[in-house]
Structures are given as structure tokens and as C-alpha cells.
Design a protein around this nucleic acid. Structure first.
Lengths: 135, 135
DNA sequence: TGAAAACTCTAGTAAAACTATAGACTATAT
DNA sequence: ATATAGTCTATAGTTTTACTAGAGTTTTCA
């Protein structure tokens, strides 16, 4: 299941992508427009900012804004930042690889074999979609 | 993330697929061979049996066995039984569809758009793999 | 027939993850 | 100055996950 965090994050990004001139939008406005708990959204936007996807401006007239053009924001990046590993199992993860404690031989493991394919197909989707494609 | 339940279930199925003559294998033996907690495995095998993937035999010499040939067991079925919906979001699920409470218009929703593609690509993998392919 | 082997089922629980909230703090614009 | 708006830390409630306990039932075979 996709976490609410990722879902809300994606919605916020989409919303911000539509803003003219990349002017800052307040958290409250995004929250209201997308039906998201404001406090929860705060922490999500913060994560997106820390990971270089959003910029922020404090004080009056402040808010969050896209730091890059939607065409340049890959879904692989967004997903990794919000949802974490794209692989369903650490032993097939490119960025978060971990060995299984059970499972003596990865090459022989049926789960490994299947999940490798699933990862590749998901990666294929994420790599071929930018934020612009979702508008 | 793939649940342990699904992981263990897949391993058990793979193990059973290799058994000659489909003779019943005791839970304890599968658990030991695949490094799985026996009691936990019990409940998983039970689920698989209830969903028509395994047969069981009670009493002395009993155990679990595949009820169909590995070539005839699709991963879509296995995944739905063990892991639940293949879609990451209910609003793009074929078998477990549900409308989002937020989100006024599905067609306009960026999350929907992206997750539809992810679902399709995952489905594509699961439909093209039978248990036999994982051996 | 009876006892051991093996599956069935219900219930419960500890830990982790997820979702959300509260409140104090800091920076900025005007 | 002061109102505005993001930042940070802590924490509480809920749900899911991964198991465990234990009693019960069915089957087989001597």
C-alpha cells in the first residue's frame, strides 16, 4: 500500500507544479485545496524541502514552491524520498540493498527472482514519468 | 514492502513444487528447511489451502501438497491470496476497488494516474510468471 | 479400538510503523 | 515592532505485522 505521506506529497507537488511563476504557496492553502491535515502536510513538505524538491520562504507572503521545473522531477526521486525503497524486498533494492537472514542463496531464491522483475517494471514506470506527466 | 507472510508463503510453495509425486510434506519439515517459524507457517499454509492452492492430509503420513501443477499456478493468484491487492491504492484496484474520500475527481488525480501505470506493470509481471517459472 | 501423528482454529500480544497533533521556536516582510 | 509563516521536537493514538499459546479435531495404522 502507498502511504498517505506519499499520496499527500504527490498531490502537493502536483498542486505546486501548476502555480504560475513559482510563487510561494502557504501550507494552509495546499492543505485546504487537497483535503490534507495541515500539520501532517507540514512535515511532508519539510521532507520534500530537505531533499531538494521544494524551496520555502518564511514570513509574510511566504510558502513553498517548486525548485525545479516539473519536467525535471523524476518519479524515481519523489518515490524514494517519500515512500523509501522502490523494491518490495531489500535483497533486490538498488539503493537500499540488504541481505536476507534466512535464504542461504540469493540466486536460488524464488522470491528474489520474482521481486527482481517487479522492481524492474516499477522502476521502468517511475523513470518514464516526471511530475509534468502527471498534470 | 512485501510481508513476511507472502515471502514465507512463496518459499513454501516453491518447496512443495519440487516434491516428487506430490506426496504430503509435514509443516515441520517445510519450516525447518526454509527457516520459518512453524506456528506462523501453519497459518500461512492454512490460508493457501483455503484458497485452493494447497491440499492437506491429516493423520500419520499427512502434510501439505500442491493441488495443481506449478505451471498452472499464476503469481497473480498467489499474490492476491497472500499479499492482498496488487494495486498500491484502492482507487486503481481491479479486485478491491474503493473510492478515495479526499480526491473529488479520479480522472484528474495525479496519484491515480501514476499508480494505474504501476499496477499495470506489476500485473504484467505476475501474469507472466507461474510457480514453475520460479524454480 | 485406541493412541499417536498431524492438521485446525481461536485468541492474544509485543513491537513496529503509520498518521496525526501540540506547542514552542525562528526567520522574514513590511 | 509585529504579524505571518515555516521549523523543530515530542508525543499520542491507531493499525498492521509477525508471531505464540494452547486446546480441539481428524486421520491413520498397529
Amino acid at each position: 500500500m502507498l502511504s498517505k505521506k506519499t499520496k499527500y506529497g504527490l498531490k502537493a507537488l502536483t498542486f505546486l507544479a501548476k502555480v504560475k511563476n513559482r510563487e510561494p504557496i502557504q501550507i494552509a492553502e495546499i492543505a485546504k485545496h487537497e483535503n490534507i491535515s495541515q500539520k501532517f502536510l507540514e512535515s511532508i513538505l519539510l521532507t520534500l524541502r530537505r531533499n531538494g524538491l521544494l524551496g520555502s520562504k518564511k514570513g509574510k507572503g511566504g510558502g513553498y514552491y517548486l525548485i525545479k521545473e516539473p519536467e525535471d522531477i523524476l518519479m524515481t526521486t519523489v518515490m524514494r524520498v517519500l515512500e523509501g525503497p522502490i523494491a518490495m524486498v531489500p535483497c533486490v533494492s538498488l539503493n537500499f540493498y540488504e541481505k536476507c537472514d534466512d535464504c542461504p542463496d540469493e540466486e536460488e531464491c524464488s522470491v528474489h527472482k520474482l521481486m527482481l522483475q517487479v522492481r524492474d517494471s516499477a522502476l521502468d514506470v517511475y523513470r518514464n514519468n516526471t511530475l509534468a506527466d502527471l498534470l
